[in-house]
Structures are given as C-alpha cells and as structure tokens.
C-alpha cells in the first residue's frame, strides 16, 4: 500500500460574490496524479500560485477536491477524513500559534486534539523541545517574543508530538535565516531516519528539495509536469541543475509569482464580496 495515492486530482477556485459568481475559474489542481511509497520523501517544486498549498490542504482534509481521488494509507481524504486526520500532520511556512501563549501551552493544546493527556504531554513536550534544540529558558515565553526560526522549531515539535506517519511540509524553511534553515533541514532528515515517516515537501527551494527528497516533482498552474529522481529530471530536461530543469520545464523562474495563479495559494484571504 502506498502512503499517498493521488489520481487525477482536480480543484478550481472562483472569485465568489454573494449576489453572483464571476465567470473566472482558476484551476488550482488540474488532473494531478502521483503516489508516494511509505517512508519516502517527495518534494514538489512550484512557484507561488502553482497549486502546492492546495495539494497539501487537500491531503490535510481542509479542502474538498472537485474531482479525482486522494488516499492516505488507503483512506480516502473525502469519505474517510477522520482516519486521514489521525495519520497526518504538517508544518507550513507560517508557524501559526496563539501568539500570547507559550510554546508549552501551544503544544499542549495541539497534543490534546490528538488524544495526549496531561501526564503524557508533561513528559513528551520537554523531550521534544530538547530534541529540536529549543532553549529551556524560553519555554514559558510568549510565542510573539520568539524569532521566526525559533517559532518554526516549535512548529516542528508540534508536528512530531503527534507522531504522524505522513508529514506535509509546506515551505517549512521559507523566510528563515541560513542557520535556522539548516537546523530545520537537519531535523527533517533526523525524523526520517528515526521514525518511518513519509514526507511530502512542497517548496520553491531547489537545493532543499535536492538534499531532502528522493524524488522531485514540478507543479505548474496546477499540473504536475514531471516527477522523478533528480538524475532523471536532469537527463529529461538536459539540465545540469534542478533550477535549470525547472526553467526548462516551466519556462519561468521559481521566484516569478504566477499572477494568474489560484486564489488559495495567494497570501490574501479569499474575498467574498457583497
């Protein structure tokens, strides 16, 4: 059984109005098909608006697809969402915590949702915070007083606390300083070695994809253009680097925002006009 099976997955977004729907519909995922073996790390490269976050949200059961199928360890994300949610956790570009609460309080809150009681969290939270190198002196500090890199360590701790068998990483190192970035990447490697965790890494960091993943895919305007080991991609696009392969396949740099990209990928809230 595959850890992740995605077949012909489709999702479109449109700008909605309470009075009328506009005609413009943008495909966020356009017939995406791939699978991930248990314990494998697959990276999906794409520009902002390419559909990476939508893919992660579908696998997290936060978005209902318009068509196709997505299964996590055999459980359908639409019809068996409860089973999927027990197996999955994620780390996103934004650490996303209750800013006034401390790391320990935030982790306790997250852990309770996965059935971890008071005694278990009292033991596991300090262990995991030690494991990600979080300073003991800051454990009761408010999240808003911590640096972005330190917050991201807590985000990794939150994901690890629930022992996910599938970890969805949505640009986990974007915006981090080089040192924090290396620490986070090191930690991701350790998780894979110590646990049998399957990882889907969505990123636009070519180097990160190359060092962490066994296979790399390129997502452009909702379509998965290719997916394979680095060597295969380089050969297919006659490129020397992953960046060149990306340019050859999409015709654009990964830094270029897709102005026609889907709304769900943008950092703006979905606009509901009246």
């Amino acid at each position: 059984m595959f850890a992740v099976e995605v077949h012909n997955l489709r999702k479109e977004f449109s700008r909605r109005s309470l009075r009328r729907r506009s005609g413009k519909r943008t495909p966020a995922l356009d017939g995406v098909t791939f699978d991930i073996a248990r314990g494998e790390c697959v990276a999906v490269l794409g520009r902002n608006g390419s559909g990476k976050s939508t893919l992660v949200r579908v696998l997290s059961t936060l978005i209902l697809p318009d068509g196709g199928e997505a299964r996590v360890f055999g459980h359908d994300v639409v019809t068996d969402g409860g089973a999927v949610r027990r197996l999955v956790n994620r780390v996103s570009v934004e650490a996303s915590f209750f800013k006034k609460m401390s790391p320990v309080e935030n982790l306790s809150y997250a852990a309770r949702f996965y059935g971890l009681g008071i005694r278990e969290t009292r033991e596991r939270i300090p262990e995991i915070l030690d494991r990600v190198g979080f300073p003991r002196s800051r454990r009761d500090a408010r999240m808003e007083t911590l640096s972005r890199g330190t917050q991201q360590k807590v985000a990794l701790a939150r994901a690890l606390l629930t022992s996910p068998v599938l970890l969805l990483l949505d640009e986990p190192t974007t915006g981090l300083d080089p040192r924090s970035k290396l620490e986070v990447q090191e930690f991701i490697r350790d998780i894979r070695e110590e646990h049998d965790t399957t990882i889907l890494l969505c990123t636009h960091d070519m180097v990160e994809a190359e060092i962490l993943a066994e296979r790399i895919g390129i997502l452009e305007r909702g379509s998965l253009l290719c997916l394979g080991p680095v060597e295969e991609l380089l050969e297919r696009f006659q490129a020397e680097t992953v960046e060149q392969a990306f340019l050859a396949s999409t015709g654009r740099s990964v830094e270029d925002d897709d102005e026609n990209g889907n709304e769900d990928e943008s950092e703006q809230p979905l606009e509901v006009t009246t």
Binding site: S60, L62, R85, R90, E94, S96, F97, A110
Partner: peptide, 14 residues
C-alpha cells in the same frame, strides 16, 4: 486570526 485554524480543523477531534 491567529492562523491556527488549519491545524485545529485538520486534527482528529470530532
């Protein structure tokens, strides 16, 4: 507002 909504709504709590 805090940005935690996705983590809370993808958790296995009824």
């Amino acid at each position: 507002w805090e940005g935690t909504i996705e983590y809370t709504f993808m958790a296995p709590l009824s």
